[in-house]
Amino acid sequence: MNRIFLFQIIKKSFQMINFRLMNFKIKSESLYLIITLMILVFMILTFSLNFIKDTALILLINNFYHNLCHQIESRTFFIDGKPMLICSRCTGIYSGSLTLFFILTMISSFRKILDKFNFRIVLLLSAPLLIDWSLNFIFKIETTNFVRFLTGFLISLIPVYFLNSLIMSVNKYD
C-alpha cells in the first residue's frame, strides 16, 4: 500500500517537473541577468570562511565547492588570513565569467559581437592555460597564483562564448 502511494508521489512530481519544463520560456534579457546573479552568489559564497559564523553551514558549503575544485591551499588566494573555497585558477574562470556576463547583461549589442567571434580564435585562448598547466603538472615548475588567475580569466571567454551563442540560438528557435 505504502509502496503504491510512494510510487504515485514520484510519478506526480515527475509530471509536475515535466509540466514546468514544457512551459519554460524566459526572455534572453532575464536569462543573462539570472546567470550573472547566480555567478555573483557563487563568487560571494567562496568567501564563506570570512563572513559565515555557522560551522554546519560552512562545512556544507565547503563540501559543495569540494565537488568543483581541488581546493589545494597553496594554490588558493587568502583574504584576511582565510582561504577562498576555490583555487586561484577557478577564481579567475568564475570572475572572468561574472565580468563578461555583467557586460552582456548591460550592453546587448555585445552579445551579437561575441556571437560573431571566430570559434577557433576563441579556442586559442585556452593556450596560456594549457602551457601553465603543463608547466605545473608535467614539468613540475610552479607558477604563481596570479599567473593561474590570469590564465583562468582568459579561458572564461570560452564558456561565456558558448553560453551566449546557446542563449541566442535557443531564443531564435522558440
Binding site: 570562511l49 559564523k53 560551522t55 560552512i58 562545512l59 565547503n62 588570513g81 582565510k82 582561504p83
Partner: peptide, 13 residues
Amino acid sequence: SIILLQKYLPELP
C-alpha cells in the same frame, strides 16, 4: 573538513 575549519576559524565551535 573539521581540521580545515579549526585551522582557520578556531573560535567556531
